[in-house]
């Protein structure tokens, strides 16, 4: 990650934040990060190590694990201060893994997007059946799973297929607009760009094919996969 990535992004967009995070620049050149709804609070737990972002982003307010870091469920109650741009980039890459790199590539005109069908068709093992999802099922899945309100704050750049079909007809046009603030606050923002369907969406597609509907009760998605690393 270039240490100038976010500096360029913030300067270009005039944003003072990314996703649900507000970024305040201090006189000494350091940065203070908070949940954007906490920016005015003075009773926050204080953190001063960029590595702390990993723990701060891992659970939501109710203590639930957040496997999707761009879900609109960032916990409240903390302020993370980092000394310079490099550590700011590093912390934000823990809060929103890979998103600054995607933004930088996009800004340079180098971001390659992959249609959903290609992502699904290259899967092997337990995810191979996901490619069998029908177009209407995929339309409904993406419309529900990726929605900014309660799903994911990324801006979708990929299409459903090479023909250019939209990722979902159920999502509003602004879901595909990098200039739109997916939090709904209408602020200038650094977009959380989505260049390709994530593994969570692929797993949901598999569930639909296997179960005939979105099956939240299907817990086999990890246990059934061939594995060599005994990862747990």
């Amino acid at each position: 990650m270039s240490e100038t990535a976010l500096r360029a992004a913030l300067a270009k967009s005039g944003a003072a934040g990314i996703g649900q995070i507000s970024i305040a620049t201090r006189e000494d050149g350091s940065f203070a990060l908070t949940h954007h709804e906490d920016a005015a609070r003075d009773d926050l737990a204080l953190y001063a190590n960029a590595d702390d972002a990993a723990q701060l982003s891992r659970f939501d307010d109710a203590g639930n694990y957040r496997p999707l870091k761009t879900a609109p469920s960032l916990r409240h109650g903390w302020r993370l201060t980092v000394p310079d741009h490099r550590s700011l980039d590093f912390a934000l890459d823990l809060f929103y893994p890979g998103r600054l790199a995607a933004f930088l590539a996009w800004d340079r005109g180098r971001l390659v997007t992959t249609p959903l069908r290609e992502t699904l068709q290259r899967q092997t093992g337990m995810y191979r059946p996901a490619a069998k999802i029908s177009d209407p099922e995929a339309d409904g899945l993406v419309g529900s799973f990726c929605r900014s309100d309660g799903g994911c704050l990324r801006t979708i750049l990929w299409k459903r297929d090479r023909d250019g079909s939209p990722a979902s007809t159920l999502l509003p046009p602004e879901k595909f607009d990098p200039a739109h603030d997916q939090t709904g606050l209408g602020r200038p923002t650094v977009p959380l760009l989505c260049q390709e369907a994530c593994n969570l969406l692929v797993a949901e597609a598999r569930k639909i094919v296997k179960c005939g509907a979105s099956a939240d009760s299907d817990t086999s998605s990890e246990a059934g996969e061939p594995r060599d690393g005994t990862h747990q």
Partner: peptide, 19 residues
């Protein structure tokens, strides 16, 4: 950098690192 099969950043995301 680290990347993960079932977490973020994904392996696909990692293709964008080291620019």
């Amino acid at each position: 950098a680290c990347c993960f099969w079932k977490e973020e950043p994904s392996l696909r995301d990692a293709l964008l690192y080291f620019a």
